[in-house]
């Protein structure tokens, strides 16, 4: 199949997945979640003669913005992916398209990236915009954040999308697949909401391993890329999230990005049967 045909299919898929009101709902959800974390601290940042610890705390709010944004992108990615695959299977559109000379590889890839790429672009634009609102006086930091959040959101979305596809291919019914994907993604995101540093200082042992979960791992990786160090690190410096290297977190995120998507891709092209 020609590249022109692939692009036409991608355009049709993007148009279908992001048809009104999905785009509006996603943007509104992300905007509301991020708006809550915007803080009028620009002036504090500008006066950088504050102690480095205080500056670190201020920088931490950047990380908080990313964490707030993560929930809508995680949920929307899982939901839209499940919706896209399960609805097409149930409605017979998957059967119709796969009855033309479109390979299963192309079909899977197009459907997957029709959700992931626009969502990555949206999350990147919105996080950059809202972080920019808080820190407009420190444009270098905003730019650094903007560059760092892109790979992190991509890897994180790959995992959520994989989970959405897994649910869709197993459940095969639109509404149950969407609800299951929403719940699964929410519970996997939840550890990213926990203040691990505080709990570590309190001596809660299992929290040490939360940094290995997909989304908490993504946030720790983002912090590392931005050079954010939380306050009072000396008390918990032997915790995993500080002892593991930045590259270890990069490998962990790549592992999560691939762990569902690659087996599902292989299953879809080799064994998946379209019989709705």
């Amino acid at each position: 199949m020609s590249a022109r045909a692939n692009l036409a299919l991608l355009r049709a898929e993007v148009g279908k997945v992001w048809a009104s009101p999905i785009l509006e709902i996603t943007v509104a959800l992300m905007a509301v979640m991020t708006l809550m974390s915007v803080q009028p601290i620009t002036e504090l940042v500008r006066h950088s003669d504050f102690s480095s610890v205080f500056r670190s705390a201020v920088m931490g709010s950047v990380s908080a913005t990313a964490a707030s944004l993560m929930l809508p992108w995680v949920i929307m990615c899982g939901v839209l992916m499940a919706l896209s695959f399960a609805r097409d299977y149930e409605s017979g559109l998957m059967q119709s398209v796969l009855s033309t000379p479109v390979s299963r590889k192309t079909f899977f890839t197009v459907k997957f990236f029709a959700v992931v790429l626009p969502l990555m672009l949206l999350s990147w634009l919105l996080t950059t915009f809202f972080v920019g609102l808080s820190f407009y006086s420190d444009l270098l930091m905003v730019l650094r954040f903007s560059l760092c959040v892109l790979p992190v959101s991509f890897l994180s979305l790959m995992f959520c999308g994989g989970l959405g596809v897994l649910v869709a291919l197993v459940v095969k019914r639109t509404i149950p697949a969407v609800l299951t994907s929403l719940l699964a993604n929410f519970f996997i995101w939840y550890p990213a909401n926990i203040d691990t540093e505080w709990l570590l200082r309190e001596g809660v042992g299992y929290v040490n391993y939360l940094c290995l979960t997909p989304h908490e791992g993504a946030l720790v990786f983002l912090d590392r890329l931005l050079g954010i160090v939380p306050m009072g690190i000396s008390q918990i410096e032997d915790a995993l999230q500080f002892t593991l290297s930045t590259s270890s977190f990069a490998v962990l995120l790549i592992f999560y990005a691939c762990v569902l998507v690659i087996p599902l891709f292989v299953y879809f092209i080799r064994r998946f049967e379209v019989c709705e």
């Binding site: 097409d88 017979g92 059967q95 009855s99």
Partner: peptide, 19 residues
């Protein structure tokens, strides 16, 4: 793939890109 290039099909369950 080679077969689908030579065959046209109309299913009982019709599905299109409705947008």
């Amino acid at each position: 793939l080679a077969i689908r290039g030579r065959v046209g099909v109309l299913y009982e369950k019709l599905a299109f890109y409705d947008n």
